[in-house]
Amino acid sequence: MAVVLGPNRYGKAETRLVRVVRDGGVHHLKDLSVSTALSGDMEAVHLTGDNAAVLPTDTQKNTVYALARSRGVDQIEDFALALARHFVDSQPTIRHARVEIEEYSWERIPPAAPGAGERRHSFVRAGTEVRTCLVHHDESGRSTVVSGLRDLTVLNTTGSEFHGFIRDAYTTLEPTTDRVLATAVRARWRHVSPDSDFAGSYREVRRRLLEAFAGTHSLSLQQTLYAMGRSVLAGRPEICEVRLALPNRHHFLVDLEPFGLDNPGEVYFAADRPYGLIEGAVLTEDAPGAGSAWD
């Protein structure tokens, strides 16, 4: 039986980078987790332990910090592209680079009292939402960019139904025409070109996701997923595909009858697990092939 080496890559995972820009007395903050992975002429290192083709993962980490200083960090997609292109263009043994970045948002702490001076160097973490991107770049010069977000928690207190589903011997769920619908959105969207206005695109995609969630009278979370993806593609020509993962954060009415109380849709138990998980892709008919863009 012949044994051969299959696809492989190696890199530095979750390099933590905080970049402070000191604009006089006003400071600006970027807080990132950067993961890099490289592939190329790696047969020898796997088969014989010859490291001649290997750029150390510690060097990859240092490159993240050096480029953050030399070129700055604005949009995470642009920074990821710069890193990926640097690795492929500077090392002949590296054929492909994958860079994934998560960005954690911070907001300025507001003045303590009306008329107090602005706190120009004090920040508070802005919730749980995380901005993401995934960039691939190879020796042919081809780049792909997938932007995204995760942990965008949303909830509708009404405007959601669920009925008409399959019932079998194990079904206990009762149909409903009025329920709480809540989810923590994970959305990723693929750009047609790596030359997008990433800041404007992110802002508008996020807005469209939220508006579609709020504006859809939902008969199923699947229907809401499609409406959210369709809204993005209808208004953003730079995007060719949206992938969504929506965990159904179930809210169950609490039975208050044992206490002599009614419960007209006011008191709920929010269950964290198990939960339904709805996943799907929405794409344009002429979307170019994705290849490994999502991996």
Score class of each variant (00 low, 15 high):
145 V>C: 07
244 L>I: 02
73 V>H: 03
165 F>Y: 13
20 V>A: 07
173 L>T: 15
152 L>K: 02
225 L>E: 00
206 R>L: 09
154 V>D: 00
45 V>S: 05
22 R>N: 14
30 K>T: 14
184 A>W: 01
56 P>V: 04
34 V>R: 01
138 D>T: 08
32 L>V: 01
174 E>L: 13
119 R>F: 10
83 L>M: 09
179 R>W: 04
159 G>A: 02
12 K>S: 09
217 H>N: 08
181 L>A: 04
17 L>D: 04
273 R>P: 02
280 G>Q: 00
50 D>W: 01
38 L>P: 00
251 H>S: 09
106 W>A: 05
20 V>K: 14
277 L>N: 06
265 G>K: 10
278 I>L: 00
191 H>P: 04
148 G>W: 14
8 N>T: 13
132 T>Q: 13
175 P>K: 07
42 M>S: 12
104 Y>W: 14
240 C>A: 15
69 R>S: 11
4 V>C: 09
20 V>N: 07
15 T>F: 02
88 V>F: 03
34 V>T: 02
151 D>N: 15
33 S>V: 08
271 A>Q: 14
74 D>E: 15
177 T>C: 06
274 P>H: 14
210 L>S: 09
182 A>R: 01
226 Y>L: 06
40 G>T: 04
291 G>E: 11
150 R>N: 13
160 S>T: 02
255 D>S: 07
240 C>K: 12
68 A>T: 03
181 L>H: 01
161 E>H: 12
21 V>R: 11
120 R>D: 09
240 C>T: 14
191 H>V: 05
55 L>G: 06
255 D>E: 10
277 L>Q: 13
220 S>Y: 03
186 R>H: 15
280 G>E: 01
150 R>M: 10
49 G>V: 07
9 R>E: 11
60 Q>H: 04
147 S>K: 13
202 Y>T: 09
150 R>Y: 07
79 F>W: 08
44 A>C: 05
96 H>D: 08
184 A>F: 02
283 L>S: 08
194 P>D: 10
199 A>N: 09
159 G>R: 01
220 S>D: 03
228 M>A: 00
245 A>T: 08
198 F>H: 15
178 D>A: 13
11 G>D: 01
219 L>A: 14
7 P>L: 10
235 G>F: 06
163 H>I: 01
160 S>Y: 00
2 A>H: 09
107 E>N: 11
200 G>N: 06
78 D>C: 12
197 D>A: 08
223 Q>V: 04
55 L>W: 12
111 P>R: 12
278 I>K: 00
154 V>F: 00
27 H>M: 14
238 E>D: 15
276 G>Q: 05
182 A>P: 00
39 S>Y: 01
104 Y>L: 13
158 T>E: 09
205 V>R: 05
114 P>S: 12
209 L>Y: 01
49 G>I: 11
152 L>F: 06
197 D>T: 12
145 V>S: 05
99 V>F: 03
248 N>F: 10
241 E>S: 08
46 H>I: 05
216 T>E: 03
246 L>C: 00
221 L>W: 01
